[in-house]
Amino acid sequence: MRILVAMSGGVDSSVVAGLLAEEGHEVVGATLQLYDHGAAVQKKGACCAGQDIHDARNVADRLGIPHYVLDREQVFRREVIGDFADTYARGETPVPCIRCNQTVKFRDLVALARDLGCEALATGHYARRVAGPQGAELHRAADTARDQSYFLAATTQDQLEFARFPLGGFPDKAAVRAVAARFGLPVAEKPDSQDICFVPEGRYDSLVAKLRPDAVAAGEVVHADGRVLGGHEGIARFTVGQGRGLGTASWDGQEKLYVAGVDPSRRRVVVAPRGALESTEAEAGEVNWLIEPPVAPFRCAVKLRAREVPRAATVAWDAAARLARVTLDEPGIVAPGQACVMYDGDRVLGGGFLRAAGSVDSTRAAA
């Protein structure tokens, strides 16, 4: 086949290009230039900017495949970085990797692949695409420590049919690097991407301050019972479940306090003992189903954060409100803005974004 490979300049996507070329496919490499704010050029573990683009081009030259660079800075700034800042300003916690996959990566690269006459788009994600009786299915990777299915839950069925994930069956990263070394790729020992790629030195609050200064305006830290315990320097610095950065408001007598909620309208951070944060109820909007939307409540496992183990739950799809109503078997911390991804074993059934209880879904234009 003619296959477009999304090449970020890292070892994973480089190995994908090498493997597909070795199998005899006509491989075309494409790199998205998403940002370049100076520090990105030299920042280790970044992607899609500066040195990474040069690395992708060098790999393509080594493999003897054509390579294209697509400027998507404006789209990325609007639909990923802008959404990142807006989400914090709403008092929620964003998942920019999902937004990036949902917009500039799969939407734009699938369109490019089809324009170039390609029959598939391959990426370096650690996930598995399995041919099922009703079409392509998204499954967790063999290497559960690196599984990225959570970040692919917004991939549509049409995009999934077109996608390929050659690394999904690899046992670990060492095996991937061994293949890179066998191909003689210059990125074989390149460090993995770290943190949020477009945030230099991990200081996301300074980025939010430039785009949404209201999200870094001072306000009060308030106990759930109404007592004012202290102050803060911006709601963008807090997320539900956080226990650090609260200063004198982190302790109330004999109990440690955690962020229980963020009220952007009054610039308040609400804190409470950890037990008060946990709930068995959650709601998710902007749901992308990879199965037929269920008409009756069903049992599954859900992940409410990328790094947590899936937990047993019952999910009911409210088609009128366009909300997935989740009832957890055991209470957990629900952070609005994070993704809720539903699994049947290793298979991803669908996913959406957590909402505060009782909210109404409003699908973003980027979805």
Rank of each mutant, 00 (worst) to 15 (best):
M1L: 14
R2L: 13
L4S: 01
M7E: 05
S13V: 04
E26D: 15
E26W: 04
V27C: 08
V27P: 06
D36C: 11
G38K: 11
A40T: 07
Q42F: 12
K43E: 13
K44P: 11
C47W: 10
D52W: 05
D55H: 10
I65Q: 06
R72A: 15
V80L: 03
D83W: 07
Y88M: 02
R90Q: 11
V95S: 04
P96K: 02
C100F: 01
F106G: 01
D108I: 10
L109P: 06
V110M: 13
R114C: 03
D115T: 13
G117C: 06
G117W: 07
A120D: 11
A122C: 09
G124T: 04
Y126G: 05
V130E: 08
A131S: 13
P133A: 15
Q134F: 14
A136S: 09
L138M: 04
H139M: 08
H139V: 03
T144M: 06
D147T: 11
A154C: 12
Q159M: 13
R164K: 08
P166K: 03
G168N: 07
A174C: 01
A175W: 09
V176M: 04
A178F: 00
R182M: 01
G184L: 00
E189C: 00
D192W: 03
C197W: 05
P200C: 02
P200D: 02
G202H: 03
A209L: 03
L211K: 09
D214P: 10
A215T: 06
A218C: 06
V221R: 02
L229Y: 09
G230F: 02
E233S: 14
V240D: 06
Q242N: 11
G243M: 05
R244H: 12
R244P: 05
G245T: 00
L246E: 00
S250V: 00
E255N: 08
K256F: 05
A260T: 08
D263Y: 05
D263S: 04
S265Q: 12
R266I: 00
R268S: 03
L277H: 03
E278N: 03
E281P: 00
A282E: 00
E286D: 11
V287F: 11
N288E: 13
L290G: 05
I291H: 04
V295E: 14
V295D: 12
V295Q: 13
F298H: 12
F298I: 01
R299M: 00
V309T: 15
R311C: 13
W317S: 05
A321P: 02
R325Q: 15
I333W: 05
P336Y: 10
M342G: 11
L349F: 03
L349V: 07
G352P: 02
L354V: 09
L354N: 03
R355N: 12
R364C: 12
